[in-house]
Design a protein around this nucleic acid. Structure first.
Length: 876
RNA sequence: UGAGGUAUAGCUCAGUGGAAGAGCGUCACGCUUACAUCGUGAAAGUCAUAGGUUCGAAUCCUAUUACCUCAACCA
């Protein structure tokens, strides 16, 4: 007897510990087929948010299913050092303690950073355990582990030696807050309300002025030309002249270029090569001077005149005022434009010229494009709509700026031996670098101390793009057993927001270093939004606390809730009510478990025929549903899979099967039925296990008379058998009969306890094999087959007519007539439609025969139904 | 600006040419001896709009509208 309340928090930690203790999550290479997932490594200092919950639940579902299917399932967990985000956090924290980063040596700063990492790193992994994630924790990796960093350095040196990495003076995205560059992908464009300033420049040797529109008046101090379109008739007189930059009174040339849009602003463009990508291109073309007016924190430098030291936005306000006072400002218009901001610090990006390291992408992307668009589709994206985005990015890719002016990350292995920009060598170690430098300079006297390593660190993604290989040490030891066994991995589950940052680059690296795809399938989940469709974010405060949710609804409930709402390919509108639904499913199956354990089993009674047929039916139904579920899995439609399971458990198992086999109150159940039901219960638990790992293990372990496997988590997935479709269809017909009787009971107020008699006019020649089942479910003491109508309430299933004799007092003739008339009208209308179709010559001659046959069947069914309805009405 | 996506019940979504579906929610009735975290029943849709193709359109085509995503961007 077990009817105790289900206490999720106790049960969940109990089984998680049990699984851990028995090493069920651990994988090592063996003769089985591997199934591998590498986790998208979360930020080491991050906390679990809904996006993590979703994609880790999905990964766990896939891993647990693979494990049950007998594969060697390996899910590699780990964290990412997230250079900018983490360094920013550490800097902020040091500031709180009164320490400035600039006062620290690199070594001292890194010491602080690692302390921080040791303190907060891994919290997120602990939280994943609460969710039930069955990662192989012994394999936990961090992108800055020594071996991982060594792989990164090795790859850098290799790419450099292949001529793919170069150092260049380029315009890059500068984050003045983090004081580092960003890759193009780390810049988020935001629409901002701004102003368009119309400034008047004096023309040398003329009294008139020329008007220029700009959104950034502070940058005039860096102007080195004014550009007009040579085809612009308005400005022909300006050709070859010079203008004077207001305030700094610098004389700059007027140049001509068709790049200028005649329509926009005044058709006259100021050129600031140091602070705008396009201006830089113009500047290079026309050999203009480059004047950088900013410091690295975006305050003005000495070119800023009396604004030196002030922030760019302060200067924008002040300079526009000064320009106005001095008569240079003609007018100001409202103007919305998109402003680049830093993904990490939110600071407005400043285009800036500087020396950076770049990776040439042109050749590297080729196999990665082929992987997705080649005939064999080596890498498949789910949903496919992302292929377009992928193609666009890959074909428009620019060289990847991989250096960051940060300390937290792998330091670039370039060593300078002189003052010149080109006086450097690249090597994995300082010693190797020395040797190279000595060769290069032909100076064997060069000393180790004279080498200075480049201070920059590598972009975080330059380490995570190796993740599927480096976690198996496949970069340093490409022939080792693990990489041979686990690579390529099978599925990757992640958000579409890092399709380029990470997914695309892993594919690139995979082909470059293993000449193989890193994974076969990429399942891109939707973004998690709240009910108002807002993206969940910390700043909005609309993201629920993950652990609190687990506390309230159990991990199983939250997992189901998340999956229910995550229709494939769509964003997911998260609603706690769905977790409640998940919890409800847990409760339902728990109570079903209680029921089976309440029964006393008797070996002395025969199995009732109703039980025999119900069990046959359920087995067929189960196979049909599992087949459907497998199809959903193959398309990564997990929300459809869980829904199919939900209905199977709720309706078919609990609602029908258990109700049919349930013995009368305090009566024992026959042993055959009991064992069959337990066997069925076990199969249900197995298919449900990937979704609700805890409650299924708990129930399975406690089931009486179950199979003797060691634990559900490592048991064998049910083998899908064929199903008997007739049996399923006939049962469905029977459920309609049951519903019909229930409706009558309800309408006529007949208590369930009161047994009824049921009469049938079997026009459909419907099987009688479910009569015992129907009798039990509707509490009928007899089912009689008749040829004539019986007085009482009636209903129809197809053209079969069913009667429940009740005293005439209970029948409201008017209501009955109304009901039947309505039903008749509908049937007649329907018939008209079909007959019209069938009498249409073109339909009959064009439509395929099966369709016509179907229509004829519909016609005869409807005619039969109309006849029975008419007959019923006549007797009233 | 370009590319892609979406529009079906109150909500979230299935449904790719042949009788409009599911879950949740809502309403009504029921504590029937696993579960009231439940059961039974019911109501609820001009399939965004306008055209077209077809014997037949939620489904295919065209245009329009609205929203979403990605990419680019003009000072």
């Amino acid at each position: 007897m077990s009817n105790s309340q289900y206490d999720a928090s106790k049960v969940e930690s109990k089984w998680y510990n049990y699984w851990m203790k028995n090493n069920y999550f651990h994988s090592s290479p063996d003769e089985r087929e591997p199934y591998t997932i590498v986790i998208p490594p979360p930020n080491v200092t991050g906390v679990l948010h809904m996006g993590h919950m979703l994609n880790n639940t999905i990964q766990d579902v896939l891993i647990r299913r693979a494990r049950l299917q007998g594969k060697n399932a390996c899910w590699v967990p780990g964290t990412d050092h997230a250079s900018i985000a983490t360094e920013a956090k550490v800097v902020a924290r040091l500031k709180e303690q009164g320490i400035n980063k600039s006062d620290l040596t690199r070594e001292a700063f890194l010491k602080h950073a690692f302390e921080w990492k040791d303190q907060y790193g891994g919290i997120i992994l602990e939280q994943l355990k609460k969710l039930g994630a069955s990662c192989d924790w012994a394999r936990t990796k961090f992108t800055m582990d020594d071996d991982m960093s060594a792989s990164v350095i090795k790859v850098f040196v290799d790419l450099y030696n292949k001529g793919l990495i170069y150092r260049g003076y380029r315009m890059v995205n500068w984050d003045p807050e983090a004081k580092t560059t960003l890759s193009d992908e780390e810049v988020i464009y935001e629409e901002r309300q701004g102003s368009l300033y119309y400034l008047q420049y004096d023309i040398v040797g003329a009294t008139e002025k020329v008007t220029i529109a700009t959104t950034r008046p502070e940058t005039i101090l860096g102007d080195t030309a004014v550009c007009i379109n040579p085809n612009d008739d308005r400005y022909t007189h300006l050709k070859g002249k010079q203008v004077i930059v207001p305030l700094c009174n610098r004389k700059i040339p007027i140049i001509e270029d068709e790049y200028v849009d005649v329509e926009f602003g005044t058709g006259c463009l100021k050129v600031t090569p140091a602070h705008d990508e396009n201006d830089k291109v113009l500047g290079d073309k026309h050999k203009l001077e480059v004047i950088d007016i900013f410091n690295e924190d975006a305050t003005l430098n000495s070119f800023g005149l009396h604004y030196e030291g002030k922030d760019r936005f302060v200067v924008r306000k002040e300079i526009s005022k000064e320009l106005e006072e001095k008569g240079f400002l003609l007018k100001v218009e409202q103007h919305t434009n998109k402003v680049g901001t830093s993904e990490r610090t939110k600071a407005v990006i400043e285009p800036r010229l500087s020396d950076q390291w770049f990776l040439k992408m042109e050749e590297l992307v080729k196999p990665a494009l082929e992987a997705v668009f080649g005939e064999d589709r080596a890498v498949k994206l789910f949903p496919r709509k992302f292929e377009n985005t992928y193609r666009h990015w890959m074909t428009n890719i620019r060289d990847w700026n991989i250096s960051r002016q940060l300390w937290w990350g792998q330091q670039i292995p370039a060593y300078y031996y002189g003052d010149g920009k080109e006086d450097f060598v690249v090597a994995e170690t300082k010693e190797a670098a020395l040797k190279l430098a000595q060769e290069q300079t032909k100076n064997s006297e060069l000393l180790l101390e004279e080498l200075h390593q480049d201070p920059d660190a590598l972009d975080t993604w330059f380490s995570s793009w190796l993740w599927p290989m480096s976690v198996f040490d496949g970069i340093r030891n490409p022939e080792n057993e693990e990489i041979q066994y686990y690579y390529p991995t099978n599925d990757l589950v992640t958000g579409p927001d890092i399709l380029f940052f990470w997914v695309a680059r892993m594919i690139i690296a995979g082909y470059e270093y293993k000449d193989q795809r890193p994974f076969e399938n990429v399942y891109l989940t939707g973004l998690v939004r709240d009910k108002q469709r807002r993206k969940m974010s910390k700043s909005l405060g609309n993201s629920p606390d993950a652990l609190k949710l687990i506390e309230d609804y159990s991990a199983d409930g939250v997992r189901v809730g998340l999956l229910l709402s995550s229709a494939a390919g769509n964003d997911l509108l998260f609603d706690e009510a769905l977790c409640q639904q998940g919890k409800g499913l847990g409760n339902k199956i728990w109570s079903a478990y209680n029921l089976t354990q309440l029964w006393t089993v008797s070996k002395d009674i025969e199995q009732p025929i109703a039980s025999t047929i119900a069990i046959d039916w359920y087995r067929s139904k189960f196979n049909a549903v599992v087949t459907e579920i497998e199809d959903h899995y193959s398309k990564y439609r997990l929300s459809d899979a869980i829904m199919a399971m939900y209905k199977l458990i709720y309706d078919d198992f609990c609602g029908w099967l258990l109700e049919i086999v349930k013995p009368a109150y305090q009566q024992p159940i026959d042993a055959k039925t009991f064992n069959d039901v337990i066997g069925i219960f076990e199969d249900n638990l197995k298919i449900l296990h990937p979704f609700m790992p805890f409650i299924t293990e708990e129930i399975w372990q406690s089931l009486k008379e179950r199979t003797t496997e060691e634990a559900l988590i490592i048991s064998k997935y049910p083998v899908i058998d064929t199903c008997d479709e007739d049996l399923i269809n006939d049962f469905e017909f029977a459920t309609k009969i049951v519903s019909g009787v229930r409706t009558i009971r309800k309408e006529k107020n007949i208590a369930f306890k009161e047994a009824i008699a049921l009469f049938v006019m079997n026009n459909e020649s419907y099987t009688k094999r479910f009569d015992v089942v129907i009798k039990k479910l509707v509490n009928a003491n007899e089912i009689n087959y008749v040829n004539e109508k019986v007085d009482g309430a009636s209903f129809r299933v197809k053209s079969n007519e069913y009667f429940v004799p009740i005293s005439l007092d209970n029948i409201n003739v008017e209501e009955e007539i109304e009901k039947l008339t309505k039903e008749l009208k509908r049937a007649e209308g329907f018939l008209v439609g079909i007959q019209k179709k069938l009498s249409n010559e073109r339909f009959v001659s064009n439509a395929p025969e099966t369709v016509i046959a179907l229509e004829r069947k519909k016609e005869s069914d409807t005619v039969a139904k109309i006849e029975t309805l008419k007959a019923s009405l006549a007797t009233l």
